[in-house]
Nucleic acid binder design. Structure first.
Length: 589
RNA sequence: CGGGGUGUAGCGCAGCUUGGUAGCGCGCCACGUUCGGGACGUGGAGGCCGGGAGUUCAAAUCUCCCCACCCCGACCA
């Protein structure tokens, strides 16, 4: 039984100044967590109970799916990460340290390598597969900017599982099993989620989906269709490609004099104002122009190359989307110095004429899928103050390929059904990922198949942010009075408030009810603080967020106990001799 | 890493412009009153004013450097 008279708890009357996000504010205010380090939090007794409830739900669902729990150290040597190249790839995001002999260690940000090596250590036959193992472990990432309390910390707890299969069909099945287990887990946690397609290209896998809790304070942007069930991380959205247009009879390309038009808007305004350049039927818009943006790619091996991206002029290049396509290379800006080195590029007037690996700049040129064969564009003529109109894709220029790099906007057509997409924010609470053979290959995880031939194992990796899930549950359930936990993760089933003076009947009665409920298997929190005014007790009960609040007070004179539902605020007066049964019913159904 | 903001008692804040006794509310302790929606009185405890250097007779206050936190952006298997 949790007695508030002795519980290590201090609720705050006012919001902490350093917390902005509601879940963070309330978890601190209601005495669940305290900040202990930049991006690191101490779990107080109530928080730790909730954390363990969440962890146990996750564990129970993993076990129910037949996955086996193991536990690695968080402190790991450099070598495995060297083998997968992530010692360098991870860059400043890993905490690195040295032992007394000067050997390198890391605080693991993720465990793919050591899981792979563990299986390599013990297994060598196809008969041992498939295998699913997982752990619930503290992870460390030196985030540039930890924020929002538990939502993005530098130390956090993650459940990470890995599947090992002999072939692609097996991986497919393993992935599906994990997907099912995740659905059950999040349903049980009472956490709303959207399953979105995510990027997998950079890691060499074939399928990847994220579970996002749709909340405005989330850091991930995703789209979902207003009509069908398509949903994707914005980085992974595949734009609908219009049908090609026949090339016959289109007007020829025409270079026109357009002084002082270095931006799309100035260009469109000038074209609409000039009689000789106007569109015969309508005004030109930014969507009629082709904008070419040059960026620098920094490759993991340290080399740098230039890349040109062509997008319709009414859209910006979304650097995150671009980076997801070109990963593991990083995208940087092409600055004045870079322009100076490449005389074929005229800033503000860059056109396809100068781009492409076969053209004067030699810069690889990728275009948005909307740039289809036969589409005609107004674009740069590669000389100051000049543009070219009617420049037609497939006739006047041919890019080196396509790239999904244009920003996605509200109302864009769904790639599946064509209806409008809407943009939303979410917290990533889970990620499932068909990793493939990348790690198994570099770390040499092979098994013998039926024919005695050595085969590279194919892997999946699957994560749930356990500590983050606590914040996500809080965030999706709280209201203006405080936290509001779903029963299964709540620190207790009932929160009994005793009002009146310790000498009055309410006190022994409250104690008796608490004991009786506990004997019936309910988890009880009892506010037995003497000399604390009823108002304070009510406010604290609402702040702490136990789903059922029981008030032993004034009603006792008439033989009733008040039972409140924290979420709805509904109150009912229950006769004293029926209250135990009533509550047991309430809390177990 | 860039831009903006903030560091003063456990929490929320004032004081800084114009240098001179460190304050308020909540919380905490003692006693008394009160007891169904954040009660009241009286008396208390609690501070290296984020850290360091400097200017000055004298620094929370002025100057420089550093650190931390919050917000926006960059970054985020």
């Amino acid at each position: 039984m949790l007695r508030l008279s002795t519980l290590f708890l201090r609720t705050l009357r006012e919001d902490p100044a350093d917390a902005e996000v509601p879940s963070h504010r309330l978890l601190v205010r209601a005495g669940y967590i305290r900040r202990a380090a930049p991006g690191g939090y101490t779990w107080l007794p109530l928080g730790w109970i909730v954390y363990r409830n969440v962890e146990n739900i996750v564990r129970a669902e993993m076990d129910a799916a037949g996955f086996q729990e193991v536990h690695f150290p968080a402190l790991l040597p450099r070598e495995p990460y060297e083998a997968s190249n992530r010692w360098t790839d991870y860059g400043p995001n890993v905490f690195r340290l040295k032992d007394r002999k000067g050997a390198d260690f890391i605080l693991a940000p993720t465990h793919e390598e050591v899981f792979t090596l563990l299986v390599k250590d013990l297994y060598s036959s196809y008969k041992d597969l498939p295998l699913h193992i997982y752990q619930i472990q503290t992870k460390y990432r030196d985030e540039a900017r930890p924020r929002a309390g538990l939502l993005r910390g530098r130390e956090f707890v993650m459940k990470d599982s890995y599947s090992f299969d002999i072939d692609d069909a097996g991986l497919e099945r393993s992935y599906e099993q994990h997907r099912e287990a995740y659905i059950k887990t999040f349903d049980r946690l009472g956490l709303p989620y959207v399953i979105v397609s995510a990027m997998s290209g950079a890691m060499g896998g074939s399928a990847s989906e994220e579970f996002l809790a749709p909340i405005d304070v989330g850091e991930d942007t995703f789209v979902r269709c207003t009509n069908c069930d398509y949903a994707a991380n914005t980085e992974a959205v595949q734009v609908r490609r219009p049908d090609p247009i026949a090339l016959d009879g289109l007007p020829g390309a025409l270079v026109v004099d357009t002084p002082d038009t270095p931006t799309i808007q100035t260009l469109v305004d000038l074209m609409n104002a000039r009689a000789d350049l106007r569109h015969p039927d309508r005004d030109w818009t930014a969507a009629d122009t082709l904008k070419n943006v040059v960026v620098k790619l920094k490759h993991p091996d340290g080399s740098v190359s230039a890349l040109a991206v062509g997008v319709p002029g009414d859209r910006d290049v979304d650097l995150k989307r671009l980076e997801a396509q070109v990963g593991p290379a990083e995208v940087g800006t092409f600055d004045a110095e870079d322009f100076a080195k490449n005389s074929a590029l005229v800033k503000g007037y860059i056109g396809p004429g100068a781009l492409g690996e076969d053209n004067s700049s030699g810069i690889r040129y990728l275009v948005d899928p909307r740039i289809v064969e036969g589409s005609a564009w107004i674009t740069g003529a590669d000389q100051p103050g000049h543009h070219v109109m009617h420049l037609t894709m497939g006739r006047d220029f041919t890019p080196d390929g396509l790239v999904e790099a244009a920003e996605i906007t509200d109302g864009d057509p769904c790639p599946r059904c064509g209806s409008a997409l809407e943009i939303a924010k979410g917290i990533e609470i889970g990620h499932i990922f068909q990793l493939g053979r990348r790690y198994a290959t570099v770390l040499g995880l092979n098994v013998l198949d039926q024919n005695g031939k050595s085969q590279v194992v194919t892997m999946g990796s699957y994560g749930i942010g356990v500590s983050r899930a606590v914040a996500a549950v809080a965030e999706t359930t709280l209201d203006d009075k405080g936290l509001c936990w779903p029963r299964e993760v709540a620190p207790a089933d009932v929160h009994i408030v005793i009002t009146g003076k310790p000498a009055e009947d309410t006190w022994p009665k409250g104690e008796a009810i608490a004991a009786a409920l506990e004997a019936r298997g309910l988890r009880v929190m009892l506010d037995d603080r003497p000399g604390v005014s009823p108002g304070v007790k009510f406010k604290d009960a609402e702040l702490v967020g136990v789903p059922t609040i029981v008030v032993v007070g004034k009603g006792l004179a008439n033989g009733t106990i008040e039972v409140q539902d924290r979420r709805s605020g509904d109150r009912a007066d229950i006769p004293v001799d029926a209250v135990i049964e009533h509550l047991v019913q309430l809390c177990t159904t």
